[in-house]
Design a protein around this nucleic acid. Sequence first.
DNA 1: CGCGTCATTGATGTGCATCAAGTGGTGTGG
DNA 2: CCACACCACTTGATGCACATCAATGACGCG
Lengths: 247, 247
Amino acid sequence: MNRAPVHMNLQTIKVACSNCNLRELCMPLGLNDQQLQRIDEIVAIRRKIKRGGTLFRNGEAFTSLFAIRTGFFKTCVATEDGRDQVTGFQMAGEIIGLDGIVNDRHTCDAVALEDAEVCVMPFDRIEELSREVTALQSHVHKIMSREIVREHGVMLLLGSMRAEERLAAFLLNLVQRLHARGFSQSELVLRMTREEIGSYLGLKLETVSRTFSKFVEEGIVEVKQRHVRIVDTDALKRIVNSQQACH
Amino acid sequence: MNRAPVHMNLQTIKVACSNCNLRELCMPLGLNDQQLQRIDEIVAIRRKIKRGGTLFRNGEAFTSLFAIRTGFFKTCVATEDGRDQVTGFQMAGEIIGLDGIVNDRHTCDAVALEDAEVCVMPFDRIEELSREVTALQSHVHKIMSREIVREHGVMLLLGSMRAEERLAAFLLNLVQRLHARGFSQSELVLRMTREEIGSYLGLKLETVSRTFSKFVEEGIVEVKQRHVRIVDTDALKRIVNSQQACH
DNA sequence: CGCGTCATTGATGTGCATCAAGTGGTGTGG
DNA sequence: CCACACCACTTGATGCACATCAATGACGCG
């Protein structure tokens, strides 16, 4: 057991967006040099989160949005009676913490599913700067709207799809986002457990597991633990749009 | 059959927020007179929608947000294969159309469930003015964040609650919002069909109906068609937090 | 008054949850 | 390096909540 000090979890690093390779994912495009420089001012610091650690928790004061630089997160909400629901999985380049804006308190937990690093962007500075840089203003609005639209999709999934459809949609969505980040279109490593997938999809972990097995039997995917290889993307797409008898 | 001209549906009226009694619901508080006057400039016109008519449709160009002045809407998303899902019900004072911001196109349909009137707020003018009036900027952010948080709640409901819990949560939510608008805490008139409730809650209309009947048997509510009287609010609250075996 | 729409209620079916047992991979301590 | 424990995952057997199918009833509107 090493004796690293506790504050390792909160280690901070000074950085800049202007030379960040994820810039096009989390920042607006088409800025001139002067604007870029001002954007740099937003990202005060970075913060490292160990696997299993939380970036923020339900009830904590909201001060900043976070841009994920590396790593993988889940966000989840909970009721008093112990029920909880994964509301999303977030990867590099995505913005996390939007839920905190309404009440100046976070309303969900953000947990790192692997060691991660985020850029801390104090929200008052975002607001300040987006009054001056219209591209940033527009970008902030679009990010929030995108999240709303994404959640509409999840509601559709949870409200009207069968287990196979849900898992197929989930895999296609994941691989598409990974592909946008330069990863394979057909191979992925799941960073979350079957139980977390199930929570997100409104299914029990056994059902997730069985559905994976079904896909394997049908030759649609290959699964070895958390390594998934999509053999037949079109089949997955057909499943998503199959509209079986259910519901 | 009357011969009213087609454009009745699009009838427009010149108006002002500064003397609107819903202002505190859809606009920021604590503005001075000069700021209020500027806000008035945002709401260019009003628009009337007949029951069953659409305010906007999936795929239509996005130009404006809408503040509901009177009436009741549902928003719903659909897949190519004909499946659809009600994503929300909106009432007076609520803002509708946020989904369109990301891609400059609406991604869902907004349908009036009764004759309605909305204030049309061109989004470019909202952005323009919110660069100058920080209270407006903050307000826009909070409205979007509130919608994100609301949808988290719906995901929790759809992903982990049983039929009774869903309907109880739905009724409590509706009556709470109506109460904030000066209506009764215990009586309400549903503006939507059982099928629309079911779509929103991820249930079939028969299940919604049966669950209503169950609540009636247990003396928790009285139901006569779309008129609902909540007899025992606490019982509903207990049901929401009951955490039965399911899921 | 008659028709269409919406709602209720019953009978039956099924998809997924639940319960349970066993496997494999990983990390830890001896 | 191995033994053990733990956790994630898989797979089977069973049950149940809700979907589906079907018939009837209650409004409301032209």
